[in-house]
Every structure is written in structure tokens, then in C-alpha cells.
Design a binder for these strands. Structure first.
Length: 210
DNA sequence: AAGTCTCTCAACCGCCCATTT
DNA sequence: CAAATGGGCGGTTGAGAGACT
């Protein structure tokens, strides 16, 4: 499939992964403003789908994958730049509990955010936060068990959900996912006040999930 | 001021799945 | 039906910037 694995390994050995390569092959590393412009023009002509065609016809010395990534994570219109709001963060946390590391699915619920951005945000901010919280919790364990009730509920549901999806969609859904009570799961009425509007949207969009 | 450490995030890698031949 | 190909996704890397000593 790949035409560049050998070259890549050579570059790796040379410690040159992100530098401009020496052999006549695809460009790697940071994109220039010129490349961005050329890519945007090519996509305007060919559409954002046939990445290999785009890569070839644009004259960019890039592989299709690289073009796709650049478009999706940076050039695509309606990309939201800047800090993740508290509400977005909360949504990410909840969706991550539900979906796990399925960043593209999570990103799908956050308009203007990319899976890469969310993944990065999780790895650099939220995972630490959670770790700290867990440490905090374990140090005060026994004193208050009430606060973990919803977490317990969520982890049960997530476990069920994951078991279900691991079996492949379309397969037997009668076992594990039968236990998934959407109403119960999305009952956050005992938790801190939040705008719950997203939940309705989530449920609407997610009808096809089960 | 200089060196080192830490964090962030763009980009690449490798695998998997869907589609095409 | 099998093999080849292309696209999508999550994991990982590493350059650059800022913080710290």
C-alpha cells in the first residue's frame, strides 16, 4: 500500500523525521502559507474528498493523508480557534466518559472543534485534571461516597456500551446495550447546574447509534 | 543572561475498515 | 471472492515557546 515506508525508516534512522527529506519524495513537516493556499485552491476545484487526486493535481509534494489532515485540522472553514470554554470542557469530559477515546465522535458534538484538538486538549489538560481528582478522591475515600454515585453509574454504562460496540455494530445488541438506559444516564439533575440543551441535540443526532 | 525543563499542538505513523478492481 | 487501494481514526512524536532555575 505505502510507497514511502522505506524512505520513512531511513529518515527515522537519520533522526530527520520532521526535516525536509533528501530523497525525491513527499514533503513532510510544517506546512507553509503557500502550501496552504495551493491546497485550498485544489480542494475548491476537486472537493475535499479525493485526497490522492488533490495531492497529485495540486502539485504539492505531499501525500494525500497529509493534505487531508491539514484541511481537516486547520484550513477547513468554521474551525473554532482559541480556548476551550468551560462548557465545551464539561461536554468533552462527559462524552469521554461515555465514548472513551473516540475523538472523532466527541469532536462531532463540538462544532468547530477537531478531533486532533480535542485529543490534544485531553492529553495535556483533562487527563491531568482527572488524575489529580482521582488522587484527591482516593485520599478522602470513605469520607464521602455520595459524589461518586453518578461516576459509578457512568462507568457501568460505559462498560456496557463498550462491550456492545466491541462486538461490532449490527451484531447482537440484545445483551449488553440493552442495559443502556439513556434517560437514566443523562439524568444530571443531581449534579451542578449546566445548560442541558446539548443533551437533546445529542439524543436527536445519536438516534442511529444504537 | 543562559541553560534546562515543561507544555502545547501540528503533524506523522500504523492500523483498520470500506470500497473498488 | 480476494487483493489492492484509499480514507479515517487513535496513538505518538518532536519542534517551538514559555516558565523556571
Amino acid at each position: 500500500m505505502s510507497t514511502m515506508r522505506d524512505d520513512e525508516s531511513i529518515l527515522k534512522q537519520e533522526g530527520n523525521m520532521r526535516k525536509v527529506s533528501t530523497k525525491k519524495e513527499v514533503n513532510k513537516g510544517a506546512w507553509t502559507a503557500d502550501e496552504d493556499r495551493i491546497l485550498a485552491e485544489a480542494i475548491a476545484i476537486h472537493g475535499a474528498k479525493k485526497w490522492k487526486t488533490i495531492a497529485a493535481k495540486s502539485g504539492l509534494n505531499r501525500c494525500g493523508k497529509s493534505c487531508r489532515l491539514r484541511w481537516l485540522n486547520y484550513l477547513r472553514p468554521n474551525i473554532k480557534r482559541g480556548n476551550i470554554s468551560d462548557q465545551e470542557e464539561d461536554l468533552i469530559l462527559r462524552l469521554h466518559k461515555l465514548l472513551g477515546n473516540r475523538w472523532s465522535l466527541i469532536a462531532g458534538r463540538l462544532p468547530g472543534r477537531t478531533d486532533n484538538e480535542i485529543k490534544n486538549y485531553w492529553n495535556s489538560h483533562l487527563s491531568k485534571k482527572i488524575k489529580q481528582q482521582k488522587e484527591k478522591q482516593s485520599s478522602t475515600i470513605g469520607s464521602t461516597r455520595k459524589s461518586s454515585r453518578s461516576d459509578q453509574k457512568i462507568s457501568n454504562v460505559v462498560q456496557n456500551k463498550q462491550e456492545g460496540t466491541a462486538k461490532k455494530e449490527g451484531d447482537d445488541h440484545s445483551n449488553s446495550t440493552n442495559n443502556f438506559d439513556v434517560d437514566e444516564f443523562f439524568d444530571f439533575s443531581n449534579e451542578e447546574p449546566l445548560n442541558l440543551e446539548w443533551i437533546n441535540k445529542f439524543l436527536q443526532v445519536d438516534e442511529g447509534y444504537n
